[in-house]
């Protein structure tokens, strides 16, 4: 049985290109296309696809809100964010909203197909271009302590050091010490990279991030 895909993008050319690209793959079935967030939501509810390929910027309802709506509805639909922007905060926002992956529009057809297959199976996909910025070559990160993981998860949810400290009943300084250690172990330079790398290496799961 093929992977059923809905495509939501407000640019007709891009939409047509995506359809043409995905139709070449034998295991994909395009069950619907939408040109704005509202139409996309209607089709997703109607067809319950395996994967919703969602543009981050759309009229009506933007991609991040749509993804959050899909997640909140509990439908068994994996959202894959598709965008022109390489800003990592989009990735953060998408993942926090419940997207399973993030891919740039400039990605190759092979990468796009791979991404769809990955999220359809319940995995996480982060665009190679962003991953490249993030990680460099693959490494096996040193294991994080439980406290470090807790600090990383809370920080990734968007809490400040002070708030994280309050949550865990530790000092702000301790939070920062833990974070510095996390960065070091994952090879990250900042919070965003730490979160993306933790997801990439499976140190942290998407469920932990959005629960």
């Amino acid at each position: 049985m093929g992977i059923r895909v809905v495509i939501a993008d407000d640019h007709p050319m891009t939409r047509a290109g995506l359809v043409a690209t995905l139709e070449r793959e034998a295991d994909f079935e395009i069950v619907g296309t939408a040109s704005d967030g509202i139409e996309a939501w209607r089709i997703i509810r109607e067809k319950t696809p395996d994967v919703a390929l969602v543009d981050i910027r759309m009229p009506g309802e933007d991609g991040v809100s749509l993804v959050r709506r899909v997640k909140d509805s509990g439908l068994p639909v994996s959202s894959l964010m598709l965008t022109s922007y390489d800003a990592k905060q989009y990735v953060m926002a998408s993942l926090r909203a419940g997207a399973k992956g993030y891919i740039l529009k400039t990605a190759s057809p092979e990468d796009l197909a791979g991404a769809i297959r990955t999220v359809a199976k319940g995995g996480i996909y982060l665009d190679a271009e962003i991953s490249r910025v993030v990680g460099g070559q693959e490494i096996v990160p040193e294991a994080l302590s439980n406290r470090e993981r807790e600090v990383l998860i809370l920080t990734s949810k968007g809490l400040s050091s002070k708030e994280t400290a309050g949550h865990l009943f530790i000092s702000e300084r301790t939070v920062q010490t833990h974070l510095a250690s996390v960065y070091d172990k994952l090879g990250a330079r900042n919070k965003t990279e730490a979160m993306l790398l933790a997801l990439k290496y499976g140190v942290m799961t998407l469920e932990e991030l959005i629960e």
Binding site: A87, K88, Q89, M92, A93, R189, N190, K191, T192, E193
Partner: peptide
């Protein structure tokens, strides 16, 4: 988010 992106 914008400040974080900018800072990075």
């Amino acid at each position: 988010g914008s400040l974080t992106e900018l800072a990075e």
